[in-house]
């Protein structure tokens, strides 16, 4: 019995060494990380730097990981922290108050002059078929809708819903107040809702 146990441990060790040598796996992981970082940082070269830092930091400790899933979770936890650090440095100062002052035609067009839904813009019922969350087609549609968000909204939406920062944490580091942030998050959500309804929930699933 003790012999068998040690063999299992050995196998685990070999797997972890293989992970480090598995260039294809590391490069696939790097691509996923870059995609994730670009979504939030809106800048490819900053995203690459952040991913590089996170990857180097994570791989130093990779010996202790015996499964790919554990390594990936660990790497993304480090990446999230690096992204938050980078956002905090606030190299980017967007004139957010200006964005908020301008009316957003696409959203105003949903409502009539009294502020009520136009008949054909009224939210439709969304079917919720079983297994939707496992449906890769659904997630592809969701990804497309996220990418269709204007960068000026997407960045804050990601901070709030993906990095799960609180309003005050976002406002601390940006040149915007809570009211502006609320306007931006509203616009992002309305657009995402429209996109999902038209692209996925409406009949035909156009995406």
């Amino acid at each position: 019995m003790p012999q068998k146990q040690s063999r299992e441990l050995n196998t685990g060790y070999e797997v972890s060494i293989d992970l480090l040598r598995d260039a294809a796996y590391i490069s696939e992981l790097r691509e996923q990380m870059i995609k994730f970082a670009i979504l939030q940082l809106q800048d490819e070269s900053t995203a690459e730097d952040v991913v590089q830092e996170a990857l180097v930091g994570a791989l130093k400790n990779a010996k202790s990981f015996q499964r790919k899933s554990a390594l990936k979770t660990w790497v993304f936890a480090i990446l999230k922290n690096k992204i938050i650090d980078s956002l905090r440095k606030g190299q980017k100062t967007v004139a957010v108050s200006q964005i908020c002052e301008e009316q957003e035609q696409e959203i105003e067009a949903l409502f009539d002059n009294k502020g009520h839904w136009h008949q054909d813009e009224k939210p439709k019922h969304w079917e919720q078929p079983e297994g939707q969350l496992e449906d890769e087609h659904f997630w592809r549609a969701f990804d497309i809708c996220l990418n269709a968000l204007p960068a000026k909204y997407a960045r804050f939406f990601m901070m709030r819903e993906f990095l799960e920062l609180e309003t005050h944490e976002i406002c601390e580091n940006e040149t915007l107040n809570a009211n502006n942030l609320h306007v931006i998050l509203y616009r992002a959500r309305v657009r995402l809702r429209e996109c999902l309804e038209n692209g996925w929930f409406a009949e035909g699933k156009a995406i």
């Binding site: 994730f36 990936k72 979770t73 993304f76 999230k80 997630w139 993906f162 799960e164 809702r193 309804e197």
Partner: peptide
């Protein structure tokens, strides 16, 4: 639907950050 969108965003992050 807003609540669903928040749930989707959280699930999407989890899907993309773990296996």
């Amino acid at each position: 639907q807003l609540n669903r969108i928040r749930m989707y965003a959280h699930t999407f992050t989890k899907k993309n950050t773990s296996e």
